[in-house]
Amino acid sequence: MLEQQLINGLTLGLIYALIAVGYTMVYGVIQLINFAHGEIYMLGAFFCVTFITAAGMPFYVAILMAIICCMLCGILLDIIAYRPLRKAPRLAALITAIGMSIFLQNVALIIWGSRSRPFPQGALPPFFREKALVMGDISLTWLQLFIFAVAIIMMLGLYLTINKTRIGTAMRALAQNKTAASLMGINVNYVISFTFALGSAMGAVAGILVSVYYNTLYPTMGYTAGVKAFAAAVLGGIGSVPGAMVGGVVLGVAEALGAGYVSSLYRDGVAYAVMIAVIIFRPSGILGRSVVDKA
């Protein structure tokens, strides 16, 4: 069953990676752990389902609408909560991020209720649950293939955006030195908003994919997924986008293997343990920069 575990882990890992890039990009430009990113992911799933059930939109249109809504949420989150604190001590921004995360989670709780709900199956293309590939014991559903494809396309798109476009260059400049970037005529707030929008779009897609994959969504789903994705970002090296991708996949596979071979009870524990171990032994992660306090 090793191969099957690996495939399940890979599916999960790609989704983690999608969330993790959101953490890492925001951290790159404003050095803030955006704890509320997990909530954007949760909102992505809920928006999508709401558009399908309440507005009767087709699946793909609902996805697109949910992405747009989440991008707006991400931008607003930054403008309302974080922007006023740019010059405040980091502790203040971090506490605000935690506060926003809890706030958004409870708003969702009030709007959609605390019970978990299934993803409306009728809206999904019927072939999703069918097996696309069967090789001996292992099988791969169309849904898993769809997740692979979407995740990889989004990553590629992100890579091209960051490395081949003007705004991507501006983002990288900002990550290096905010003052110098603004002196070079880069509109810092615009680039930060763009970063939030980009990260939120990836997070929203991840939220939708997860809720389809597990056929369930609930307002606190952003909490564990957020931490795990953050663990993935740390594992890959915070601030490094390719690192977040690698970290997500490694973590997903580690978790699937850990659950399969060590103890399924500690499934979530694997992520936390990996994260703590990485932070202690190699805080710069697989592909990141050093983070040990200079002083």
Binding site: Q31, I33, R90, L94, F230, M275, V291, V292, D293
Partner: peptide, 8 residues
């Protein structure tokens, strides 16, 4: 480590 890492 820096404060953010410690928090997490």
């Amino acid at each position: 480590l820096t404060g953010d890492y410690f928090a997490i």
